[in-house]
Amino acid sequence: MKYPFLISIPHGGVEVPAEVSGRIALSEPEIRWYCDPATRLLFDFGSSVESTIDTSISRMVIDLNRPPLPLPPKDPDGVIKVLTVDSRNVYLPGQLPDLPLIHRLMMKWYFPYHQRIDELIDRYPVRIAFDCHSMQPYGSAEQNDAGKPRPLICLGNYGDQNGWAKPGSITTCPADWIISLADAFREEFPGTGDVAINTPFSGGFISNAHYWRKGVPWIQIEVNRTLYEPHGTLAHPSEMIEERIPVLRSRIWSVLTRFWDGITVDAPPGGEDLAGSYDKERPDARTGTPIHEEDN
C-alpha cells in the first residue's frame, strides 16, 4: 500500500559546492554537525509514500527552510548563513558570498527545491506533507530554549502547544491531526515530555509557504538526535547510525501509518471535513514568514 504522503528532507545534505568550498570557515565534521545528515536515511520510506524530496546541499550553504529574503548581513541565520546556531562564523573573513554568487546558488539549489515540491503535489495524490528534521538534545546559546533539554519528538503546525491556532494566525494542519500524530508518537515513545507540539519548534518556511500555495496540510517533524547518535561530538559515528537508523525508521513509519489510518476515511485534501478544527483561510505570504526559532 502506498500512503498519500509527501516527505520533504531539506537539511540532510552535507555538500559544499566548489563555488564556496574555499570560503567556508567550518571543517567537514562541523558542516555535518550543523546539518541533519542522518535524516536522508531516517525518513527514506521509498516507494511506500507517494513522493519524497531531499537535497545534497548543506544548509550551511543554502538553507532551504528559510524565506528567500532577507539576505546577509541583515539576517545571520537566513537562507545564506553568516553564523551557526551557536554563533560561529560560517565563512572566513571577507569571504561571504556576494550578490552574483548568492544568485547562482539560489537559482541552482533553492528555487528548484521549492518548485519541485509544488510539482510533486500537483502530480501525485498527496494528502499530507511532512517536513522532516533532526534536532540537537539541548537548545544552543542563541536559541529561545538555550540550555534546556528537548523532547524526543517535536511536531509543528504553527499553533500553540495543543495544535490550535494562535490569535490572529493559522495552522498548517488541523489541530485534531497533529494531536492524533502526537498520541501515536507517545504510544511508540512513552515517557513524560517525550513528545511535544510546537515546542521548541513550530514549523519553518517550507511547511508555511507550501501550505499557503497548495492547501495541502503540513506537519514538521523534529527527531532528537540522541535517538541515534551520542551527544557532544562533532563526528557522526557511522557505525552507530547504521545500527540504529533502520530500527528507528521502522518505528517512525509505524507511527505515521497508524496516525493516517486512524484519522482519514475519505477525507478530502486539507481535512475540510473536520468541523471546527481547520481554519480554511491560508496564511498571508507577507505576514506568514516564520521566525527562525521555529525550525532547528
Results as ranks from 00 to 15, higher is better:
Met135Asp: 09
Gln136Cys: 01
Phe111Tyr: 14
Asp131Val: 02
Val126Trp: 04
Ala141Cys: 03
Met106Glu: 11
Asp145Ala: 07
Met107Gly: 15
Arg127Gly: 14
Pro149His: 07
Pro149Asn: 04
Gly139Trp: 02
His114Tyr: 13
Cys132Trp: 00
Gln136Trp: 05
Met135Val: 04
Arg116Leu: 09
Cys132Gln: 06
Leu120Arg: 01
Arg150Val: 01
His103Leu: 08
Lys108Ser: 13
Ser140Glu: 14
Tyr138Ser: 11
Gln136Glu: 00
Tyr113Pro: 02
Pro100Phe: 02
Ile128Glu: 00
Lys148Val: 13
Tyr110His: 09
Gln143Phe: 03
Ile128Tyr: 03
Leu99Pro: 00
Pro137Leu: 10
His133Glu: 00
Asp145Ser: 13
Arg123Gly: 00
Ile121Lys: 03
Asp131Met: 11
Arg104Val: 11
Lys108Pro: 07
Tyr113Leu: 08
Lys148Gln: 10
Ile128Ala: 02
Pro149Tyr: 02
Asp145His: 12
Val126Leu: 06
Arg116Tyr: 02
Leu99Gln: 10
Arg104Ile: 08
Ala129Asn: 08
Asn144Pro: 01
Gly147Asp: 10
Ala141Ile: 09
Met106Ala: 12
Ser134Trp: 07
Gly139Arg: 05
Gln143Ala: 14
Tyr138Cys: 07
Leu99Lys: 05
Met107Tyr: 10
Met107Thr: 13
Tyr110Ile: 03
Gln136Thr: 14
Glu142His: 01
Pro100Arg: 07
Ala129Leu: 08
Met135Ala: 10
Asp145Ile: 10
Ile117Val: 09
Ile117Met: 04
Ser134His: 10
Pro100Val: 06
Leu105Met: 10
Glu142Val: 06
Ile117Gly: 04
Met107Leu: 13
Tyr124Cys: 05
Phe130Ile: 02
Asp118Ala: 12
Pro100Leu: 04
Arg150Lys: 06
Lys108Gln: 14
Ala146Gly: 03
Leu105Gly: 04
Arg150Gly: 01
Val126Gly: 06
Asp118Leu: 12
Gln143Arg: 14
Arg116Glu: 11
Tyr110Val: 06
Arg127Thr: 06
Leu120Ala: 08
Met107Cys: 12
His114Asn: 12
Lys108Leu: 07
Met135Lys: 09
Gly147Thr: 03
Ser140Cys: 06
Arg116Ser: 09
Arg127Ser: 10
